[in-house]
Design a protein around this nucleic acid. Structure first.
Length: 270
DNA sequence: AAGGATTCCTGTTGGC
DNA sequence: TGCCAACAGGAATCCT
């Protein structure tokens, strides 16, 4: 379940093997992803050089001269660089053969991911309205405070809204709210600037720590097992409903918000 | 228009 | 033990 740290780790892992390489062949085995993969995608990209691999939110961009391939890993997607000619496995839906003999392979059992083509990535409908990157200068408590005025939605939904800030998935929303001592159901409009500073800091900390961890575990994407590294990190509350709160030792409460698992401490989070 | 519900999908898990 | 329902989650889109 790729959250932003895993997507960034993926980018760092594949970029050295892709950048500057020509796409000699593009193969779509199963184009029925979140949206149909354009049938003419191979024609559009074969023979072109991958100039750079970028990330925006949880989207990856393969920047070519004529445009950009937009890739999303969805829930269960992964990108791996294959060096030998190991046979494709089940759920290997898309693959690019590169000039250096390596293969970029996209595997996605649940097919929530996407492979799309655009001539202009910044103005693409999926990209245009995205909020700031959580690790950018632009993001912080002031921005959260400003954006939250008049918003009645619970704070957990608010920080998971990609128009507010990108890359905060369910797991890290739970973690950040615990670190900031904020109750997940509190209305976004009823949180002070001070507390938003704390929350923004908690989001930064959680995400950057996970990126560092993913970076160490997934250092080598070539022939890697493709196992996400961030699961190894110690999550404070997510997946620990009923356990003792790490701070006050009261049992952590687990509820469902918007059909998503939500874990918090009734004493430490207000 | 904001906010909640629904939707896509399959591997894993838990209950009977 | 075996089967099947429930669950997991990103995020666009639909609905109220």
């Amino acid at each position: 379940m790729p959250e932003l740290p895993e997507v960034e780790t993926t980018r760092q892992g594949i970029a050295p093997h892709c950048e500057g390489e020509i796409i000699t062949k593009a193969l779509i085995r199963n184009g029925r992803l979140r949206w149909p993969v354009p049938e003419n995608l191979p024609d559009l990209i074969q023979g072109q050089v991958i100039r750079s691999v970028e990330r925006r939110a949880k989207y990856l961009f393969l920047n070519l001269d004529a445009g950009t391939v937009i890739v999303h890993l969805g829930m269960s997607g992964s990108l791996r660089v294959i060096t030998d000619n190991s046979p494709a496995m089940t759920h290997d839906h898309v693959e690019l053969t590169l000039g250096n003999g390596r293969t970029l392979r996209f595997n996605d059992p649940r097919r929530f991911g996407c492979w799309l083509w655009t001539n202009d990535s910044t103005s693409h409908p999926l990209i245009r309205a995205l909020g700031p990157e959580p690790l950018s200068e632009e993001f912080g408590g002031a921005l959260l405070f400003r954006q939250s005025r008049g918003r009645q939605t619970p704070i957990k939904s608010f920080i998971m809204d990609n128009h507010v800030v990108v890359g905060v998935g369910n797991i890290y929303a739970n973690e950040a709210l615990f670190k900031a001592g904020i109750h997940p159901k509190r209305k976004a409009s009823r949180i002070s600037l001070d507390r938003y500073h704390r929350l923004a800091e908690a989001i930064r900390e959680t995400l950057s720590a996970a990126i560092l961890m993913g970076g160490t575990t997934l250092r080598d994407f070539v022939n890697s097992d493709g196992k996400p590294g961030y699961f190894a990190q110690s999550l404070l509350v997510y997946g620990h409903g009923g356990d003792d709160c790490p701070q006050c030792t009261l049992p952590l409460k687990e509820i469902r918000m918007n059909n998503r698992s939500t874990v918090y401490c009734t004493s430490c989070q207000r």
